[in-house]
């Protein structure tokens, strides 16, 4: 085993300290008794209690969760279809435009995407609310899904699909029983990516939402613009906790699946 040199050990320590200290401090201060976030006044969980009595936050959280679930699911279907026709669809009219439209939202600033969608919703007379946020989030999430899934489609052995077709499968059967299981991990990561992007998005949601529907990031943003609040610290800690548990579980299960597959391959 290679040993780490002192230089590499130091740069790893400093780098990860920089990445994690702010979040650790945030979580610690969410248990602070004092209303002043920067003065420690003893351990308390009262801000968590306050948070769960705050109807406005709970409503916003519920809207955010529904938007994220619906938009990431729609985006997964559309994005997988887009990836499939990009990689397997052969040539068709306007393919360059199509792939351009897939990649452009990934690099375009959020403010431009948000502004353009809002102007569209107003032009067609669509009332802004949960529906418009879902439409907006689906649009940018599907591009991320398409990129993740197409990179998987490019790398896998095409002869498997051809074999299924030769053996009498219809194109749809071949897709369902051969292609889909192989690209499933990419489809799932695409869904997760869309889900977290939707949970996290402030800028596009601010443009697309109406007075009737506020998402959690919008609520957090308007609260923290004025200053630091212990309630927001509590809310942030809960969100950080969820993400940490989610990512660790996901990586352990995928690692197990890889180990299992390797063992099966060795056995045969």
């Amino acid at each position: 085993m290679r040993r780490l040199s002192w230089f590499n050990a130091t740069s790893l320590t400093i780098g990860f300290a920089f990445l994690y200290l702010p979040m650790v401090i945030l979580v610690i201060y969410s248990f602070n008794e004092s209303k002043l976030v920067t003065v420690w006044a003893g351990f308390s969980t009262k801000w968590y209690g306050e948070l769960f009595r705050n109807e406005a936050f709970l409503d916003a959280a519920w809207v955010t969760l529904r938007v994220a679930l619906i938009s990431s699911t729609l985006a997964t279907v559309l994005g997988t279809a887009a990836a499939y026709v990009l990689v397997r669809g052969g040539k068709f009219f306007g393919k360059t435009l199509f792939s351009g439209m897939i990649y452009a939202p990934l690099v375009m600033p959020d403010v431009i995407l948000g502004l353009s969608l809002l102007l569209l919703f107003i032009a067609v007379g669509l009332d802004r609310g949960m529906l418009t946020i879902i439409l907006a989030h689906t649009t940018f999430s599907m591009c991320y899904v398409a990129v993740v899934v197409s990179s998987r489609l490019v790398s896998f052995d095409r002869s498997l699909e051809e074999a299924a077709l030769d053996l009498g499968c219809t194109a749809w059967d071949a897709f369902r029983s051969v292609t889909l299981p192989i690209i499933a991990p990419a489809v799932i990561s695409g869904w997760l990516l869309g889900f977290t992007l939707s949970l996290d998005d402030l800028v596009i949601a601010s443009f697309a939402s109406g007075p009737s529907s506020t998402t959690l990031p919008i609520k957090i943003f308007s609260a923290v613009r004025l200053g630091v609040s212990p309630e927001i610290n509590a809310l942030s800690s809960i969100l950080i906790g969820f993400v940490t548990i989610g990512v660790i579980t996901f990586s352990i299960t995928t690692k197990r699946a890889v180990v299992r597959r390797r063992r099966e391959e060795n056995a045969t």
Binding site: P22, M23, I25, L26, T196, L199, D200, L202, P217, I220, F221, V224, V228, I232, S236, L239, I240, V243, T244, G246, V247
Partner: peptide, 10 residues
């Protein structure tokens, strides 16, 4: 994966 907004806020 964790919220951009929260990381800025921290």
């Amino acid at each position: 994966w964790s919220s951009f907004l929260i990381r800025v806020y921290s």
